[in-house]
Nucleic acid binder design. Structure first.
Lengths: 342, 342
DNA sequence: TTGTATGCGTTATCAG
DNA sequence: CTGATAACGCATACAA
């Protein structure tokens, strides 16, 4: 049995392989996709031709014909925040072993941009989507529902998920942080937040509620900015809050650890002792929080695990399994450290 | 002019839009891809139909017909390191506005895994590839060359780039850091490094060379580990180095800022004064380095800009422009801060 | 087990 | 500027 040499110029197709192996195109297709449905003899013969020629299937023709893209769309607000890249890592680690490809978009926290990007994603006919949060535009949600792709909304628990949902309750987490600070004996408690995306808003509302319940909420104890969150901004907001409260604030809930680090570093420069003069609590529990001095109380959330689970939910659904729960609460845990020890 | 209502059941095609707008399919295609080639009247009319119906083009059909995938493959060692996600951000920010999609893979720093992933990427017929560094397996490099896709190798300057190359010289950066420390009067200078990927190795070699030139290199002043880099590991390596040098080390070049922060936090706990008792220099200049106390000397490299430029090089090449330089040195800058002020 | 006919949704080519 | 027709490469459905 002779097999033709590779013709390096033109693109190889199923037919080239079929001719080389002396079979029909569909048989080659089967050798690739359903090897069990082809006899041993032909399978070996065809595989040899494939290897010899160096044939690589055309995914686009395949997707078009089968309407299966093997693509999963993922949308996150930003690549600059370890919170999201940790989740991403979980998603990639699961999906890369399943033959699915990830198509990632970065919405820059803008629902409008998100709509545009999700439109692009949908044109790739993804078999499923993993998207962040629930503040998509109405149009965008319609697009998603009309497309009928399985959707997992991650990072936060939603009142009305589009489909599947995995995350935790930011409101409750904010409430619990405030409670922790109250329990530690602090009473003039402030809040600083940046970007103010829906999840930060919820943390703030939970925080506010807890203070209101004990009649300790004061409007001027809140400092926020629409700017992106950063250590620098944390320092700025910290100074604003000191000013607006005439320095009487005795504890601050920072909407995330970057802000908290900024506040901590600034307080060190101002010679304000943490936690003696002032308590600080962050959110997300990034690695630095555990090691900085004083160590920073923060709220741990299983980001990598959330990514893993979201991807697993997707895979399960794609395998036709509709049994599992559609909503998963991944919870959180307040890590009490030196910065709030009274 | 009436336009039909969306029929939510079947998938919309060009033809549906064409019928709704009362034109031919190819005209709709042109409105989408070459709007200038369609008269104002028809363009508006067709666009209206597209919007009303919520039509989304099928990229697979498009790619099959035009043999253009509009895909660019990107390979990075890990998603856990801001160094790479910053570059990624630059890449996405450029590419998202050009109609190209990014197919990203995370190689976990393993050339073997990289080879496997790049093989997968190639079956998507990417129009170009952006990959990290130069330590691909021989097989992998052959695959890339045979595929004839434009390739940009990023993060470091290579002796023999496969095609295009953008980055800076890590060896020289390491050399310069050592020189800076020597100039500040330090003379018992150590090095700590983790993961020990090719770029870290180069920084270490440059560092070593500078010390050797003034006869100040000592083998036991080096502490490394193959473990992933982290703040925690920085603290550990710091303690090892103190032990192996009997505490006489007076300056440490940390292969990155995470390690440096770990060393700094640990030194604070051990009551070792930086920079009075010990100088610390990091690498990458992450945000924390600028704000921590004492602020941390580090080496700034334009990561986001590198991503931007890499993507721009790719786009240029894809547009048939072969003029520009194939190798770009993005340089670096030592940010001298409190932690090395003698 | 293997093969034939046909369609997937778009774009290239060439006419009008 | 607009349209008819034929690819693009593969997989589905059915036949043999």
């Amino acid at each position: 049995m002779k097999i033709a040499k590779p013709v390096s110029e033109k693109k190889l197709t199923l037919i080239d392989v079929a001719v080389a192996a002396g079979v029909s195109a569909i048989t080659v297709s089967r050798v690739i996709n359903q090897p069990d449905k082809v006899s041993e003899t032909l399978r070996v013969q065809v595989q040899k031709a494939i290897d010899t020629l160096g044939y690589i299937p055309n995914q686009y023709a395949s997707s078009l014909a089968s309407s299966k893209s093997k693509v999963i769309g993922v949308s996150i607000p930003t690549l600059s925040n370890t919170v999201f890249t940790d989740v991403l890592r979980g998603i990639y680690d699961v999906l890369n072993n399943t033959g699915y490809k990830v198509l990632l978009v970065d919405t820059h926290y803008s629902p409008l941009e998100e709509e545009k990007m999700i439109r692009t994603l949908l044109s790739q006919a993804p078999e499923a989507m993993i998207i962040t949060g629930g503040d998509q535009t109405r149009t965008c949600q319609n697009l998603l529902q009309k497309s009928r792709v399985p959707v997992v909304q991650i990072m936060e628990l939603l009142l009305e998920p589009l489909d599947m949902n995995i995350g935790f309750c930011h409101w409750q987490a904010g409430y619990d942080v405030a409670t922790h600070l109250l329990e530690e004996g602090y009473s003039r408690i402030g809040f600083i937040g940046a970007r103010m995306d829906p999840r930060v808003q919820q943390r703030m509302q939970g925080f506010k509620k807890a203070l209101e319940e004990v009649d300790k909420f004061q409007k001027n104890f809140i400092a926020t900015t629409p700017e992106p969150s950063s250590i620098a901004v944390g320092g700025e907001l910290f100074k604003s809050l000191l000013a607006s409260t005439n320095g009487v604030v005795d504890a601050i809930f920072c909407a995330n650890d970057d802000l908290a680090l900024g506040a901590l570093f600034e307080s060190q420069r101002m010679n304000i002792k943490v936690p003696d003069d002032l308590a600080l609590c962050g959110f997300n529990d990034i690695e630095a929080s555990r090691f900085v001095n004083p160590s920073l109380t923060s709220v741990q959330v299983g980001r990598y695990e959330m990514g893993i689970k979201a991807a697993e939910m997707v895979i399960k659904r794609l395998n036709g399994d509709t049994e599992g729960p559609k909503v998963v609460d991944t919870g959180y845990q307040i890590k009490k450290r030196e910065s709030t020890r009274n």
